[in-house]
Amino acid sequence: MIMDTTTPDIVLVEDNRHDAELTIRALQRSRIANSLIHLKDGEEAVDFFFCRGAYAKRNIADRPKLVLLDIKMPKLDGIEVLKRMKENAATRMIPVVVLTSSKEERDVVESYQLGVNSYIVKPVEFDGFLKAVSDLGLYWVLLNRGTNSL
């Protein structure tokens, strides 16, 4: 769907392929998933953001407009990915929305401390999830020009 050298508008980092499929469908229905890449885990996400491995040819200066980041993933978890992004000047300004299936406070507090732009708890009720995802997508990709267009 997407070439390794190009940078999409939306990066979805999600290890659960069903959750990913549902998320992508929600974004498509809101017509904002035209340019989206789905990364399967934290390791792949780090490769992508810092242009390593399969993404070595990507230009780090090309920044996605929005990252949807799952917290609980095998190997490298979402918090660790977020930490590395915020430590690096090239990736610090990319808006990150944390997706979590937990209401546990520690996730929320930790991710806010790292400077996430927002987070959503994935509800079982898919309608609510769709709405949340599309609202956030619209907001960040379409309205927020601050970070990438300069």
């Binding site: 069903h18 994935k122 079982v124 898919f126 999830f129």
Partner: peptide, 10 residues
């Protein structure tokens, strides 16, 4: 919760 989401979503 993840399987429930899938169950419900699909």
């Amino acid at each position: 919760r993840a399987p429930l989401r899938a169950l419900n979503g699909y």
